[in-house]
């Protein structure tokens, strides 16, 4: 399971920024990059992302460990595209039986992989440096999100790690009851479905109990909530968003200037 706990040094200058500002900066940066299909703009973006990593207090090794599912999927995309792309233009690099790799194929594949990484990394960085409680607080205080939604989601989130243990328990309990699937794929699917159903029933019951406990402490009281933890939104936070926009724009401009820019639409 992908870990969701923050891994950054909490005192790093950019890790300390308001969580809403970090999310906004990441969204601005990623969405700007979506505008082009070329490899140059995402390559610049990745360089920028890796360069600011120390400012967020994340060590490169830690990022690699956190982002491995992303790297695996990027490699998967690369291989799939190289093997199956319809466009076989350009110089032939490799011709082994059915596998025909050309410069055109390689360039398209590389562009796509770089895009995936460039667009996803800001999100990884934000969640690696943000405590979920702080994010919920900031969403309520700075983005005017409803507290019922933000705190409710936060509380539900706390129960997620339990689901893994619960799945293992239910599976073992079924085996103890004499229920297993052996090698029959249909039986396997049925066992999977019924285990998932039992997990769901348990999750709903726990969720209901938690909701009652929250209401017992006035969560549904309707009185205006106060906040115990202030999340200030300062000039530095505005600057972070502006800088993200400026850097993404620079990447796009460079790609236009070197002539590789390929708009997503048109």
């Amino acid at each position: 399971m992908i870990s969701i706990e923050p891994v950054a040094a909490p005192g790093a200058p950019l890790a300390r920024r308001n969580p809403v500002a970090k999310v906004a900066a990441a969204l601005v940066f990623s969405f700007t990059l979506l505008a082009t299909l070329d490899p140059v703009a995402p390559a610049i973006a990745i360089a920028v992302e890796l360069a600011v990593l120390p400012l967020f207090g994340i060590r490169y090794r830690v990022l690699a460990r956190r982002a491995w599912p992303l790297l695996v999927s990027a490699a998967g995309i690369l291989i799939t595209l190289v093997l199956f792309a319809a466009d076989r233009s350009g110089r032939v690099l490799l011709d082994v039986g059915p596998v025909l790799v050309t410069t055109g194929v390689l360039l398209t594949a590389l562009g796509l992989v770089l895009r995936v990484l460039a667009v996803a990394l800001p999100g990884v960085i934000v969640f690696a440096t943000t405590d979920p409680t702080d994010l919920a607080d900031a969403l309520i205080q700075n983005a005017k999100a409803p507290a019922r939604f933000a705190i409710g989601a936060l509380a539900a989130f706390r129960l997620v790690p339990l689901l893994g243990q619960e799945w293992q328990m239910i599976s073992m309990a079924r085996r103890a009851r004499g229920v297993d699937a052996g090698r029959n794929p249909v039986a396997k699917l049925r066992l999977f479905t019924s285990t998932a159903f039992a997990l769901l029933v348990g999750a709903i019951r726990r969720g209901t109990r938690l909701a009652v406990a929250m209401d017992a402490r006035g969560f549904d009281a309707g009185t205006p909530r106060t906040v115990a933890r202030r999340q200030p939104f300062t000039r530095a936070d505005t600057l972070l968003i502006a800088a993200a926009a400026a850097l993404a724009a620079t990447a796009l401009t460079t790609s236009i200037l070197v002539g590789t820019f390929r708009p997503l639409i048109g």
């Binding site: 006035g218 009281a221 115990a228």
Partner: peptide, 18 residues
Amino acid sequence: TQLVMARCGDDVAFGLEN
């Protein structure tokens, strides 16, 4: 299923905020 927040202090503060 009674604890709402990740940190102990925040959990006690939850009711007071509400």
